[in-house]
Amino acid sequence: MSSYQQTKTSGTGMLATMAMLSLTLMGLGSNAITPALATLAAQFPNQDVSFIQTVATLSMMAGSLIAGAVMGKKIKTKTLAILGSILCLIFGILPVFMNSYALILVVRLVFGFTMGLIAPLGNALIMIYFQGNKRATLIGVGTFAMNIGGIAFQMLAGVLADISWNLAFLGHIFFAIAVIMSLFLPDEELEVVRNTDKKIQPKEKLNVRTVLLIGILMMVFQACNLSVMMNASTLYEVRNAGGATVAAIALTAFSVTGMFAGLLFGVLFKHIKRAMFLMAFGCVAFGAGIIFMGQTAVIMGIGYGLIGIGFNWQFAAFTEWVGIATPPSTIGIGTSIILAFMNLGGFVSSFWMILLGYNLTKILLSDVILCSVFAIGLFIANPFKGGAQQSKMNCT
């Protein structure tokens, strides 16, 4: 019987680190068409166009789980990143040449799966190759990069959607960056380790209960919060605040504020671990409340900006929680599992909106209530209690 283990054969120089961050740059690629949903609804008036976005998040779940299971074991992480990025580029822009709603859904399903293959790799590699404050800082920088990508994806998609609905999918051209940068990821060899009569160290086990808890929390939050994000263009139209381009600007505010929030995460997490979730979900709740009350593009843009801060802090904090709670050799699969649950939440968001009857008031208020509960509950529970000691144990 044989198993596989990852043997690192190269260091993590500046170029390799940038390559890892380039994968996080693609993190919001599945949301690229969000500003164009109202335009797509006009093109397909008898269809629920939210599924064009959320069907990709469903298949991302499967892709993420497979990536976590095979990265560094069955296939080199570098090879997986290159292959996944190429497929994301191809299937991301393919709907530009289609007019069938059903066919677009099929292509988006495949796109989501390929997106899932690369989604966990950036943060997983950061947590494998770095420790302590350096790791927290790079996770924060990763969210910074993710939001830069989000700005590029959404702004281009929003502008192109105002020209022609199908051109919105051309925004996925940015995956070409990941294709090129993946060539510079740390190289590794897959070494077959055969069982012998010699005494071997017990295999490190994934902290399944904690990882599943984190995944479920992320799934519930994503289902509720993504509903607010996907209704941005509708909110702006209903309130006569602008079209797809203006909605794209609001979603860009989400990415810009989240970008700088990511840069601050490492410093904040070092000093206020316990309050991290309180601040994160508090920002989302406050932002959703401002959008609920606001009637102008500027006010609603401020609300989306606050959601951007909170979203990125909660994502980075949940990622750190995985790194603290589970041994280093299981971080890859742990990260993949929580991303799979988060993507499942994205798919569930369509059904959540259906359940609420697409009532914008209910959608916004449910986000306020849920995030308030999460903020207070996680502050009281303090999941990072004793995290420093546990992190040290995981590194031994």
Rank of each mutant, 00 (worst) to 15 (best):
Y101W: 10
G84T: 04
M61H: 02
I82S: 11
L117E: 06
F51T: 13
L83T: 13
N123R: 06
G122M: 11
K78P: 00
A62T: 12
L83G: 11
F51L: 15
S64W: 01
S100H: 10
I126A: 06
M60G: 13
C88W: 00
A102R: 10
A81P: 00
T57Q: 12
L105C: 08
S59G: 07
T77F: 05
M115T: 13
V107L: 07
I118G: 02
S85L: 08
A119F: 13
K74M: 12
I86Y: 01
L94Q: 05
A81G: 01
L105K: 02
A62I: 14
C88D: 00
V70E: 12
F113D: 09
V96K: 02
Q53E: 06
Y101A: 12
G84V: 05
V70A: 10
I126D: 05
L89A: 12
N123W: 04
K74A: 14
L65T: 05
A69C: 11
V49P: 12
V49F: 08
S100L: 07
S59M: 15
G92V: 06
V106K: 01
M115Q: 13
L58A: 14
K78Q: 09
T57L: 15
G72F: 01
A69E: 14
K76H: 06
G122F: 07
I52T: 03
L105E: 04
P120F: 01
R108L: 01
N99C: 05
V96F: 06
I86P: 01
G63Y: 04
I86C: 09
G122W: 09
Q53W: 00
V110R: 03
F97L: 12
C88F: 00
G122V: 13
I90T: 01
L117V: 14
V106S: 06
K74E: 09
L89T: 14
L80K: 03
S100A: 11
K78Y: 03
A119L: 15
M71F: 00
F113T: 08
M71Q: 03
M98Q: 07
G122S: 14
F111E: 10
F111M: 07
A56M: 09
V110A: 15
L109W: 12
V70F: 08
S59N: 12
S64C: 15
L103Q: 13
G72L: 02
T77Y: 04
T77E: 11
I66T: 11
A102G: 12
V106L: 11
V110E: 08
C88G: 00
P95S: 04
A69F: 15
P95W: 00
V107E: 09
V70T: 10
G68A: 08
L83C: 10
F91S: 13
G92C: 05
Q53V: 04
L109I: 14
V107A: 10
P95F: 02
T54P: 01
M61Q: 05
L83H: 05
S50P: 02
V70C: 07
A81V: 03
I52N: 05
L94G: 03
L89V: 11
G68I: 02
L125G: 13
I52L: 13
S59H: 06
F97P: 01
M115I: 15
F97T: 15
G68D: 02
V55F: 04
N123T: 13
L105F: 03
T54W: 01
V49Y: 07
I86L: 09
M98D: 07
A62Y: 12
